[in-house]
Each structure stands twice: as C-alpha cells, then as structure tokens.
C-alpha cells in the first residue's frame, strides 16, 4: 500500500512534466494541424536557459531561493518563448500552405539542428545542478520501514502544473485570444475574414506552448538535477505520446495523457522492470488507439457530406 502510494506520487510528478510539454504539441496541432517535432528541443532549451540563469544569479551572489526561482521562471519562459516564436517565424511560416509533409520534415530538421546547436555551444557532457529544494513531508511510514514521502519539489511541481493548467484553460475558454485560437483551429480562412490576424494568433500559440515547455524544463532541471542536450528527444516523444493518448488537439486530453504516461512508467518500473518502462508506455498507447482511435478525450473528426 505504502509502496503504491509512493509510486503514485512519483507518477503524478512525472506526468505533470509530460503534461506541460504535451500541451505545446496539442495546441500547435490543433491550430495548424502539424506536429512540431522541435517542441521537445524547446523544452531542453528551456532547461538550459534556466541552468544558465541559475549560474549567473549564483555568481551575482543572489541566493535567496524564492527570488532566484521567480527570476529563473521569468527569464526561462521569456527566452524560450522567443525561441518558439523564432522557430515558427523562420521554419514553419514560410511553408504554410505548402503540402502537408513539408512542415513535418522541417520540424524534424529543426529538432536535429537545435540538438546539435546546444551540443556545440554547451558541450556534450551532462550538466549537473546540486539539489536546490530539499525536504518534504512524510505522509506514512509503515512498520516494515517503507516510507511514503512527498518532497517539497514534488509539491511545487504538482501545484505549479495545476495552477498553470487552470490559468491556461481560462485563457483558452474565456479570453478573446483563446476565442481567436479556437476560431483559427476550426476555420482559419473564415477567422481571417472576420479580421483575425491568423499569423499572429499562430505565433502566440507557439509562444504559449514554448512558455509551458520552459516551465517543464525548469522543473525537470530542479527535480532530476542533471540535463544534457539530448533530454528533449525522449521527453518530447513521451509528451507527444501523451498528447496522442489524450486525444490530440484537446487540452485536458494532453494533461490526462501526460498523467497516464507518467503513471504507467512509474508503476511499470516499480512493479516490473525499469528497462521496459518505455515499452509499457508505448504498448498501452497502441492498445488505447486501437479501441479509441481519437484518443481518450479527442473528438472524432466527422466528415460532413
């Protein structure tokens, strides 16, 4: 029981990170129907920017942790959003309106480019960061010595994710920007005819997705304490899987898919074997898609006749 609870907590934490990245995939897919394979790299760049900011602040002698975290959050989100915006502007916008595979190939190219760029400029070695946020609460401890712990970091991750999700849902459902995004999602041409600046709306979508990926990057950095230029690949693939599992194009679906993938991975590693956790995650994806082709919360596309 205790072991189960502990795995549950770990799974939710991991799932939150996947979920935040998955939102970027699902939003971009929703609005322009394209899989932005460079999104995992955006996440990686986010964590690198966070690490850089951390080291700069440390060298300036700023060590008051809440302030440091706040500055890192703003800096990393800002710069990563700028990356997201530039990538869309440089690599995807010129190809809009071309055939469907062109942006997909560009996205893969962009992903490789960004990985190599970070590898060359930052070096290939892993970058460690000593644990910054320690401590936690012991929820349960059984007689046979198994302890259920919820660390402060895990709490921060879960709370941040919940807050961001709530904020994000509000933006999409209640603000004018969100309405524009939904309008572009349904019919770009018509949205343009109502005076909506479609290009700008798409840019903002990339910016928002990149901002969330940056938050995920910061949390990854603080939680695992180790990053390298390659972390974006697997995290990206997992988050993409999460988006598909939840129903691509659906925001709550992305979050749910993220949680599902996180939980499957941790439980599989906890009860079966760590080596096969990815196999488990992808197998379950395959099974779900056989029975629910549009994912858990995705709406099936209805072809009007």
């Amino acid at each position: 029981m205790e072991y189960f609870l502990q795995q549950l907590i770990n799974g939710i934490t991991l799932g939150s990170i996947y979920g935040l990245i998955a939102i970027g995939y699902t939003m971009v897919y929703g609005i322009i129907g394209m899989i932005n394979f460079a999104h995992g790299e955006i996440f990686m760049i986010g964590s690198f920017i966070a690490l850089t900011a951390f080291l700069v602040l440390a060298s300036l002698g700023i060590t008051f942790l809440p302030l440091v975290l706040l500055i890192i959050l703003i800096v990393a989100m800002g710069f990563t959003a700028l990356w997201g915006w530039s990538i869309e502007r440089v690599a995807y916008r010129p190809l809009r309106g071309s055939f469907r595979l062109a942006p997909l190939i560009t996205a893969i190219g962009m992903s490789i480019f960004l990985q190599n760029f970070v590898q060359v400029t930052q070096g290939a070695r892993i970058k460690p960061l000593p644990p910054q946020i320690t401590g936690g609460v012991t929820l349960l401890s059984s007689s046979d010595g198994i302890v259920v712990q919820l660390s402060t970091m895990q709490m921060i991750i879960i709370v941040t994710t919940v807050v961001l999700m709530a904020g994000f849902t509000t933006v999409i459902n209640r603000t004018s920007l969100g309405r524009q995004q939904r309008a572009c999602e349904q019919d770009q041409k018509m949205a343009a005819l109502l005076g909506v600046n479609v290009d700008r709306t798409i840019s903002l979508t990339f910016v928002m997705g990149a901002g969330l990926a940056a938050v995920a990057g910061i949390m990854y950095l603080l939680y695992y304490g180790v990053i390298d230029f390659y972390i974006g690949f697997l995290a990206g693939v997992k988050a993409f899987t999460a988006a598909v599992l939840g129903g691509i194009g659906s925001l709550p679906g992305a979050m749910l898919g993220g949680l599902a993938i996180g939980l499957i991975e941790t439980f599989w590693s906890g009860y079966f074997s760590v080596e096969y956790k990815d196999v488990a995650a992808f197998s379950i994806l395959a099974i779900v898609l056989i029975f629910m082709p549009s994912g858990l919360l995705g709406r099936p596309e209805v072809e009007k006749v």
């Binding site: 920007l177 309405r179 939904r182 309008a183």
Partner: peptide, 28 residues
C-alpha cells in the same frame, strides 16, 4: 455556411469583435 460550429452562438459573435477586445485587454 462557415460558422465556428464548435463554439457557442455568442462566442461566434465575440470572435468577430476581437480586435477591439484584444487592444482593450492589452493582448490578454
């Protein structure tokens, strides 16, 4: 007809007024 079928009737009309809303909301 090209309505935004998934949005409510009211939202369809609000999308059409987004320019003023966006400016007033300081871009959200």
């Amino acid at each position: 007809i090209r309505l935004f079928g998934g949005m409510t009737v009211l939202e369809n009309l609000l999308v059409a007024q987004h320019n003023r809303l966006m400016a007033a909301s300081g871009y959200t």
